[in-house]
Amino acid sequence: MDHAKEPLLEIRDLVVQFPSQSGWLTVVDHVSFSVGRNDIVCVVGESGSGKSVTMQAALGLVQPKGGRVTSGSVKFAGQELVGMPNRQLNRIRGNDVGFIFQEPMTSLNPAYTVGDQIAEVVRRHRGLSRRDAWKRAIEVLDRVHIASAASRAGDYPHQFSGGMRQRVMIAMAIACDPRLLIADEPTTALDVTIQARILQVLEELQRESGMSVLFITHDLGVVAEIARSVVVMYGAQVVENAPVDELFRSPRHPYTNGLLEAMPQVALDRGQAPVPIPGVVAQAHAWPQGCRFHPRCGFCEPSVCASAPVALIADDHGLVRCARSSDLRLALGQAATERSVSAA
């Protein structure tokens, strides 16, 4: 069944729409990317880029919210998830695919101990006895470095700090040894020192278990820390997809480059003021014609960028959706070279 070469998760031409006063809005527009085995892929984008909805659609979670998947395919280990009945999806979600959300407090039930909640997941998916499930709960709490896991398993969510709750969520997500872990902004609500610890725990778990991780974030710093390959989204589309070192060494899309130049850390490194991306993030009710980033792009050539849709094309480093990518290679590359020189 499984073919080692085939990606673990493969999203192809996925289109997701949500209703609005002015009809259906396309919030994920022909998104394609894949997650290999033993891989860590980061999807990076700002609010409204479609990064979270892509993940929710992949797990069959947009229909309950009123959305619809109008076309495309999501294959997990060769199985098609789009259109799969909920009963079957439930067997995959939480079992083969674990997930973690941004706000750990709303994802945990305040009325049950964390041990009970983890044990419940294992009992349902793995059919373990109560005693074995409880043992497994303690084991996974220990693996995410909750001190004295055996006694803490009997505590309620409110007795844990924000960072610990997020580690409890990770423990719950990995309790069934998933092959894929999907994490949607798992560190965004946390302090930086706590975030550093969570990322360390996630990396360690990935290394030990060989599971794949799909990590959704808006922070390029976090991407640089954890990703092996990166999918950049803007305006419901993938605009760039490349291995992590390539993406940071020589970003191909002006948006990726702009995000880097806007970061305070990068500006500090260069001893300059940060260079903001002008304008505001594109919105689903009024996607710009042509390249969706063109109204904000410093490299825009209106005759090329502002009319026809731009395709995602392959170059020697990855995929990029920019009508001027071959002309811009030098300009963007130079900015990146300056960055690595000053970083050295």
């Binding site: 930086v192 550093a196 820390e225 070192d245 880097l260 850390q265």
Partner: peptide, 12 residues
């Protein structure tokens, strides 16, 4: 610790 926790956008 606070400074070293800020992830820098350069994987290398």
């Amino acid at each position: 610790a606070l400074i070293s926790a800020i992830p820098f956008p350069d994987p290398v």
